[in-house]
Design a protein around this nucleic acid. Structure first.
Lengths: 154, 154
DNA sequence: GACCTTAACGCGAACCGTTTGCTACAGCTT
DNA sequence: AAGCTGTAGCAAACGGTTCGCGTTAAGGTC
């Protein structure tokens, strides 16, 4: 177990001159106890399970503070709301454009492209903030069925 | 010059049973005469320059129809609005998380990763719908200045 | 522990991009 | 030219996120 990580984050936040409020702590705890990618609303719901008074806008502000401090990263997943996660682990993301699933891929996998892109375009890829769109295996499957240039397409 | 492409698209749309309205034609024309990535609002503005009565919602619906027909592609660029462009050319996109610039990169560049991702995760990367986040060269520059782990961090 | 400063909260209203329901209009077919 | 029906136009709704404002409470100081 590791309330460790929560403490580390909170300590870091305090070191920056921030205050450790119930809201902030709750947000960090929620993020710490999952490795899913949560939307602000997800986090709000989880937080409110124990602290019903904490407002969504507070969640957003907490996430802002944490982002500024580099303690959380967010990711844009297509037309769906932004998702957040603790840390700035440099892994890439595959986002299914159909079901919205987010698949994590190790940074090593995208590093070669990142390197070449940087060389050719001077563009610094931020691996954590990275998302490749496409279709996850199961959606690709069903898509294949839909698109069959088949018989009567009921 | 090539009103050619516009005609081709419109012909395709009619072939599908759609109607060629002023709004649809205007949208296609606007998209045809640029190689920028335009937001719906951009397109609306451009269209309204000559047809002030055409409503934004109509633009959205035209874009929907065109998307369904596979004639336009859209791309999610971070927290900024969705951008559209004609065709489904399979090139990748680098999106600067700071200034929002969109840099096109040839599909060949990302193909190796796409292939590996598909192999390892069964995930079908859609190259056109692809966006790598990061920093364009100029923003990377200024970011570097801000983040200096220097002396007194004011 | 009480006191004070001010960062952060809670709330509601505002925002922005996008979608939707509805009636009227205009492509296209015959 | 007439009719069928896909689209337009408008305005209102929506969902995620932000903002302004008065209030609360975190954490340093005595």
């Amino acid at each position: 177990m590791d309330g460790e990580r929560v403490d580390a984050v909170l300590r870091h936040m305090r070191a920056r001159g921030g205050r450790i409020t119930t809201a902030l702590r709750s947000v960090v705890e929620v993020l710490d106890r999952t490795d899913e990618h949560l939307t602000a609303q997800d986090i709000a719901a989880a937080v409110q399970a124990t602290h019903p008074a904490i407002h969504v806008s507070t969640i957003y502000r907490a996430l802002d503070r944490l982002s500024e401090a580099g303690m959380v990263t967010h990711l844009h997943v297509g037309h769906a709301p932004v998702v957040y996660h603790l840390g700035h682990d440099h892994h890439g993301h595959l986002v299914c454009g159909r079901c919205g699933a987010v698949v994590d891929v190790p940074a090593t996998l995208i590093r070669p492209v990142a390197a070449q892109v940087e060389r050719d375009y001077g563009f610094t890829v931020e691996p954590g903030h990275l998302a490749l769109g496409g279709l996850c295996s199961s959606c690709a499957e069903s898509e294949r069925l839909d698109t069959l240039p088949s018989h009567t397409h009921s």
